[in-house]
Each structure stands twice: as C-alpha cells, then as structure tokens.
Amino acid sequence: MQAYQPVRLRAAGGTGITRPLLGGLLFLWILLPLVPLILWSVAAEWRAPDVLPGAFSTDGLAALLRPEVLTATGASLVLGLSVALPATVLGALAAFAIRRLPNGWARGVEMILLAPLAIPPFALVMGSNVLLLGARVPAFPSVVLVLTVTALPYTVFMFRAALASYDDQFEEVARTLGASSRAVLARVRIPLLARATARAAFLAFLVGWSDYITTLLVGGGQLLTLPLVLGSAASATGNEQLTAALSLAMIVPPLLLLALLAVPGPRRRR
C-alpha cells in the first residue's frame, strides 16, 4: 500500500526549475531509444549518414498481422498471464506467511525467496531443465513453472512492501463497525492491497511476456513466443524493418498496462 501519511519530499536543491528539468531528462532518456525504433518500423530504406529514412513503407507493421506473428503474440500473452496468476497468488501467500514468522526467520525465508534474482538465469534454467526433462513435464507447464519461480521474488517483494504498512487492526476495526468477514475482505483487505496486487501481477506478467532464455531452452523450440520470433528476426540480416516492428509490438502492450495501472481508481475521486 502507499505510505499511510503522504510524505512530501523536496528534491535536493529543489528550486522551481530543477525538478521539471530532471524529470524531462529522465523522460527523454527513456523515450529517446524508441525514436529510431519507430522510424525503422516504417522505413523502406535508411542509409547510414542520413538523419531520416529515405523512403517509408508500412510493410514492417503489416508483417505484424501475419498468422505466425499473431500466434506468437497470443502465446506470449498466455505465457505472461499464466505466470502472473500463480506468481501473484503465491507471492501474496508467501508475504502473508513471512509476516507471521519471528523476525530472524522472516529474514532467512526472504533471502531464499530472493535468491533466484542472484543466480544467473542461464544457470537456473540449465539446472531446472535437467530436472524437468527427467520428470517428462511438457514444454508449456515447464516454462510456466520456471518463470513463476523467476517472477516470485518480484511479487513477494511487492507484497512485503505493501504489508509492511498494512495493519491487521484495519480489519478488526471494520468488524467492530459491523463488517462481516466477507465485507472485511471485499471492503477492506482487497481495496487496501489492490495497488500492490496490480503491481505484482504486472511485474510477473512482464517476466513471462518478455522471457527469451527460458522459453528457448526449457521450451525446446516447441513454444514460439514473440521474443523468440523477434530473436530470429534480429539475427537475420537486412531485416531491420520487421525487427523494429516486432520490438514495438513487444513494448506497446506493457506500456498500455502500465498506463492503466497509473490511472487513479474511481474511489479516490468520488
């Protein structure tokens, strides 16, 4: 949850102009790399010294509608959602469970849950691949399984942060004000943890949506997602237009989701 009492931080040396300036720079830093990408996606021809493409075409964008690209996009969406659901639920459960532990134990369990972040993904994937192949688990569930473990640190972290400022007494006070257990869940617990849940699910979705290595190695080529299609397009030469279009297709859906998350809930404004 957001801080219970909003704390107004003044930017260091926060005179009128520095803050918007810094913000603008940050914005540019994130957006600037997108500009060539957008240009490439609609360029028919773009030679080295030129600032802008010499000719434009929509072939690259049109290629996104090819059946194999659409299938791959669908597969990525399904993979992202399939990772988001268990990783969010498990993350919430883990965070609630860790909170019940005495302090020392909580820290230990937290370290174990965060460990996948420290292990190079390649090592993690190779290790689990051996196990999953041995157990003859099919490709898709195997990928979901490994990616859920990868996503878990993010979701646990989101919920840990949210629960740190979450007080069980909110639920108790609601009960003494006449709220049944169901009303407590619907009117207090879920609204109070809604933002954290959305953020956790978003991060976990991204893990599935943008994964390359796990899908390639554990999926064994059977699972063709958008990043794999993008990878093969990028490794071929003279394919910049398609590569750029595919990259945009990778970026836009998460950006839309993010924008959705940033919109304040209707309750805030009533």
Partner: peptide, 18 residues
C-alpha cells in the same frame, strides 16, 4: 464482534486510506 454493537477506537486512528 460485527453483531455486538460495541465499537472500538484504538490508539491509531485506522482510517481506511482508500
């Protein structure tokens, strides 16, 4: 508790932040 008609004010105000 929800049917007892006994309200409690705690040390923390516990206003629902949403």
């Amino acid at each position: 508790a929800e049917n007892r008609g006994i309200a409690v004010v705690f040390q923390k105000p516990l206003l629902f932040p949403h």
